[in-house]
């Protein structure tokens, strides 16, 4: 046991080399292109974004412009980071964001292709940075419960069945990164919208505005140019928080009931 562990640690620290093909684009109007970079001696324990940090340090040393990418918390919760890596949002690992991806998931000598989210409602700002403000607009259209500060009842006044609270929490885990849109061939935002609609549909506090909410959010989503859902499930497969398609089914029920009762 101990010896095995020792050996595995030696293997663990072997450093790796990569070829990177990264999308570079000066600004929203400029034409983009892939640039190729060689990167040596990367530790397998290095995160994907730390690997890009190392590349950027080398670029700055050569008086070149570093690669721009969105990132902030680097622990998988803020939803800022999002890279399209080898044709998959957030790369080859499951249930994580780009910042939680580690280089041990790649093989020494791999070529890695890095692109921004590709979706019409998410225009490129620079290099790998895209504009996801469309998501904020969808929430502003109705992704909330309309209560002002103060004057609300005691928190334990309305019991919520634990099962429902758990489903609401599953949906509420969405970090708004946009991987679902990037994964979808139609650039549909159904999983993102469904996560919010479903969270409130499962809670008694969300019932009062339920109909209005789903209609307004879906309308805004369409208006912003997100595509239709054709139930391929690519969004669920790539969602870093593994949000289930069942939330889309629940939103559809909410939507139809709101339409017919309107």
């Amino acid at each position: 046991m101990s010896l095995l562990r020792y050996r595995s640690e030696i293997i663990k620290f072997k450093e790796m080399n990569f070829t990177l093909k990264i999308w570079r684009q000066e600004n929203a109007r400029a034409k983009g292109r892939f640039e190729t970079y060689q990167l040596q001696d990367i530790s397998p324990d290095c995160s994907f974004l730390e690997m890009l940090d190392i590349l950027n340090q080398q670029l700055i040393d050569k008086f070149e412009k570093p690669v721009c990418f969105d990132h902030d918390c680097r622990e998988g919760i803020c939803g800022a980071c999002g890279l399209y890596i080898n044709g998959r949002p957030h790369g080859p690992d499951k249930g994580i964001t780009t910042c939680q991806l580690h280089m041990r998931k790649f093989k020494d000598g791999d070529t890695i292709v890095v692109e921004p989210w590709r979706a019409k409602p998410f225009p490129v700002i620079k290099d790998l940075v895209v504009d996801r403000s469309a998501f904020d607009k969808i929430i502003q259209a109705g992704g909330f419960i309309s209560v002002n500060t103060g004057g609300v009842p005691d928190a334990n006044t309305i019991p919520v069945p634990r099962k429902n609270a758990d489903i609401a929490m599953d949906a509420a885990a969405c970090i708004g990164c946009g991987a679902c849109v990037a994964a979808c061939k139609n650039a549909s935002a159904m999983l993102f919208v469904a996560a919010k609609v479903s969270q409130f549909a499962m809670l008694p506090q969300g019932q009062v505005e339920a109909k209005e909410r789903v209609l307004k959010m879906v309308q805004k989503m369409d208006e912003l140019g997100f595509g239709n859902c054709t139930n391929t499930g690519a969004c669920e497969a790539e969602c870093p928080k593994e949000i289930s398609l069942s939330h889309i089914a629940r939103m559809n029920r909410e939507y139809f009931s709101a339409t017919f009762n309107a």
């Binding site: 909330f144 419960i145 209560v147 103060g150 609300v152 928190a155 334990n156 019991p159 919520v160 609270a165």
Partner: peptide, 22 residues
């Protein structure tokens, strides 16, 4: 205490017990 009340009213899915209380 008012914070917890406010957040529950906003639909924050706090952990609950089987009886439905927080």
């Amino acid at each position: 205490n008012a914070i917890i009340d406010q957040c529950v009213a906003q639909g924050v899915p706090f952990a609950r017990e089987y009886g439905g209380l927080l």
